[in-house]
Design a protein around this nucleic acid. Structure first.
Ligand SMILES: NC(=O)c1ccc[n+]([C@@H]2O[C@H](COP(=O)([O-])OP(=O)(O)OC[C@H]3O[C@@H](n4cnc5c(N)ncnc54)[C@H](O)[C@@H]3O)[C@@H](O)[C@H]2O)c1
Ligand SMILES: NC(=O)c1ccc[n+]([C@@H]2O[C@H](COP(=O)([O-])OP(=O)(O)OC[C@H]3O[C@@H](n4cnc5c(N)ncnc54)[C@H](O)[C@@H]3O)[C@@H](O)[C@H]2O)c1
Lengths: 256, 256
DNA sequence: ATGTCTTTGTGAACGCGTGCACAAAGATGA
DNA sequence: TCATCTTTGTGCACGCGTTCACAAAGACAT
């Protein structure tokens, strides 16, 4: 998960649990697919399968939105698409700025899935003067000096940070001061923001480390043989490139 | 959050809660920073602040790893770095392949933070014959036909998918069949994999939609004023910039 | 109309994660 | 050696999220 909001006393927003909110986009995507194939209705079972979740969970999630299903039939696809879109705030336009147009920033700018759901790239901002004016994904990059003006002029409330880690907090502060209240952070740093500002982070490195943990565990289990009492975790394959020297690389510094 | 493993009966891996595992990389990053500044020890309070979490939570997390602290003093930075690295499986080398070298794939390949923690880009794979041989981030892109051989030869167990959504499941199947047991998926699709294979997803679109939800809610609260009995669960309803045309864009199809 | 059959919506139980609060551990100084 | 002071490690309670299981709702056929 590259997710994680910063702070927030678990204030269940308007009665809709945070976990449910995080799944609504998933349902919406599955529903959009059905809609394109002109499927009129879906059962909770079918939709749940498409979204990769439990059907009971899906029904409970939808129950927070209201009673939009028909017993014995299922859910009307178009209607549900609309209801979820409205709930997520996608019936309006969200201008977004991307700050830090390097490798990642440029990829994000080129990302088509951006505009598809009400998100519009209002501006690309970079601190490098050499980049100012350069078109990326059809949009001319603007210099950081313009940041406040851009935010203000476009009524931007969502900012994406893809600068190096060292610049992230500073950029964040400027964004917030200029009026941005939601930030998607790709830089590997913990951002501190005032109350009322939401931060979500996407951290590739963390994701890989979590995978490595489970990978190691799988390999270890296999090595340990199946003397475990329960066959819950299957044997799986051989450890990857693991000639993990016999703990030979313990740092010299020991605790006490 | 762009996170979410697929399936898995909440099998608490080796006694370490999943939530804790997800935070270990965060602690590790904070500790690495301290280590570079040659700080010998940290208290749970200081480290927690650096990692952006609660100190009690941090102490509880560490308690799952063992008793590595010294009461009255704190934790030895170097020692803790080693212990967490070992726990996460970062003391060994993890060869990784990236499949789909487009905008995003190329950015990922160029990402420096990759190699820093034991992850090594073993190969870049793309289906486009025109890309074969082209160097990206100093590595020659290889054609999809070689996928199985590459996985096998390098003992790759972690794969990154950054192909278009339509190709993701197919690529996933091939990776898994070739021996990959952990996948980081950037394509906006639900991947289905056999038991024993971990999938984590990073989904920009979902992150933005979650931010939009809260953004809409904030706007609604502000618009509603403070006439509510408690500022916790506001009336809402008053959509923000919603000139929600007299429901003019409600789909024609209604439920019942 | 009435019965059957499908599927929703939800009450209830359970487990995980979080945070409080404090006893125990150990360092440090006299 | 003993007292004091800091900080860890954890028991405990609480709330959120998940899942089960089923009653109620409605479609559809007869
Ligand atoms: N590339 C990836 O796949 C990847 C993956 C995960 C995380 N990240 C993170 O995303 C960030 C960007 O990665 P990248 O590979 O694109 O780096 P990059 O060096 O290619 O791009 C960074 C860009 O930010 C600009 N910049 C620097 N300081 C700035 C400031 N104060 N204001 C505005 N712009 C500024 C630079 O001019 C540069 O164009 C890094 O923090 C990196 O750790 C990247
Ligand atoms: N660019 C972004 O910032 C971004 C953000 C979020 C998600 N994504 C997702 O990441 C994926 C890649 O995005 P992108 O912008 O890099 O797209 P892209 O079109 O630039 O790149 C896709 C690459 O995948 C290759 N490819 C296609 N089918 C393949 C196959 N079967 N096997 C191997 N390679 C194959 C193509 O040749 C191409 O080089 C998409 O699913 C996109 O939705 C991208």
């Amino acid at each position: 998960m590259a997710t994680g909001r910063t702070h927030r006393p678990a204030t269940r927003s308007r009665g809709i649990p945070e976990a449910t909110v995080a799944r609504l986009p998933l349902y919406l995507r599955a529903l959009t697919g059905l809609s394109e194939r002109s499927v009129p209705t879906v059962s909770s079972e079918e939709l749940a399968a498409a979204a990769g979740v439990n059907s009971a969970k899906l029904r409970k999630d939808f129950s927070y939105l209201g009673s939009y299903g028909t017993r014995g039939v299922g859910y009307d696809v178009e209607y549900l698409v609309y209801q979820i879109s409205r709930e997520l705030g996608l019936t309006q336009d969200w201008p977004v700025v991307i700050v830090g147009i390097g490798n990642l920033g440029a990829a994000l700018a080129n990302y088509g899935g951006f505009a598809s759901r009400g998100f519009r790239v209002a501006a690309l901002i970079d601190a490098d003067p050499a980049m100012a004016g350069t078109p990326v994904a059809g949009i001319a990059v603007q210099h950081s000096d313009e940041l406040e003006k851009i935010i203000s002029d476009n009524g931007v409330s969502i900012g994406v940070i893809s600068t190096p880690a060292g610049a992230a907090q500073q950029v964040c502060d400027r964004l917030v001061a200029a009026g941005v209240t939601s930030i998607l952070n790709f830089a590997p740093t913990v951002l501190s923001v005032p109350d009322g500002v939401d931060v979500r982070k996407v951290d590739l490195s963390i994701e890989l480390q979590i995978l490595a943990f489970h990978e190691q565990r799988k390999a270890g289990e296999e090595a340990a043989g199946n003397n475990a009492e329960q066959a819950d975790a299957p044997p799986l394959r051989a450890t990857p490139a693991s000639r993990k020297g016999p703990d030979g690389d313990v740092p010299a510094v020991m605790p006490a």
